[in-house]
Simulated scan of single mutants.
Amino acid sequence: MAFSTQDSDEVLSEINVTPLVDVMLVLLVVFIVAAPLLTNAIPINLPKTESVAPVEQKDPLVLSIDDKGKVFINKDEIQADLLESNLKAVKAKNPDVRVQLQADNGVNYGEVARAMASIERAGISKLSVITAK
């Protein structure tokens, strides 16, 4: 028996973590061994085929606004007030049209917002805003 020579009524409040570490290591080993067994993969031998060409996607419509506020569709200048009607015509020809909007850094944000509103009113939902890195 061990006797203490000090006369203190303090409670020893240290936790022995060694058994906890042992249990956690055993659980870790169990999970490492059991994890590969829990996959629900069904072994299937897939047939081999020739490569198939990807689905053709048309080039997106590029809508550009330069620093002077001029609007271009695929490098063709148009009037800003005719943008919506031109976009509706393009949408009528190709319902899955994609639009890439690129605006000069110095252009007023109002011009960009008007172009985006015209794109939305034309019924085009696939819009990408192009920026530089």
Rank of each mutant, 00 (worst) to 15 (best):
M1G: 15
A2K: 13
A2V: 13
S4Y: 08
T5L: 13
Q6G: 06
D7Q: 11
D9F: 03
E10G: 01
L12F: 12
L12Q: 02
I15W: 08
T18S: 12
D22A: 15
V23A: 15
V23F: 10
M24G: 07
V26S: 05
L27K: 02
V29M: 15
V30K: 05
F31S: 10
F31G: 08
I32V: 14
I32E: 02
A34P: 00
A34K: 08
L37D: 01
T39E: 09
I42L: 11
P43K: 14
I44H: 07
N45M: 07
L46E: 13
L46C: 00
L46F: 10
P47D: 14
P47R: 15
K48Y: 09
S51T: 13
V52F: 10
A53G: 01
A53D: 09
V55M: 12
V55S: 13
Q57M: 12
Q57W: 01
D59V: 02
D59E: 15
L61R: 03
V62K: 05
V62R: 05
S64V: 05
I65M: 10
D66Q: 06
K68S: 13
I73R: 08
E77D: 03
E77K: 11
I78K: 05
I78Q: 07
Q79W: 03
A80Y: 05
D81Y: 06
L82W: 03
L82E: 12
L83D: 01
S85T: 09
K88R: 15
A89N: 12
A89L: 10
V90G: 01
K91C: 01
A92L: 07
A92C: 00
N94H: 06
N94V: 02
P95A: 14
P95Y: 01
V99C: 06
V99G: 03
V99Y: 02
L101Y: 02
L101T: 07
Q102Y: 03
Q102M: 10
D104L: 01
N105E: 14
N105K: 14
Y109G: 14
G110E: 14
G110Q: 14
G110F: 06
V112W: 06
A113M: 05
A115Q: 07
M116V: 04
A117L: 08
S118F: 02
S118P: 01
I119C: 03
E120I: 01
A122D: 04
A122V: 03
A122Q: 09
A122H: 05
S125M: 04
K126V: 02
S128Q: 13
S128M: 11
V129F: 13
A132N: 09
A132D: 11
A132C: 00
K133D: 13
K133N: 13
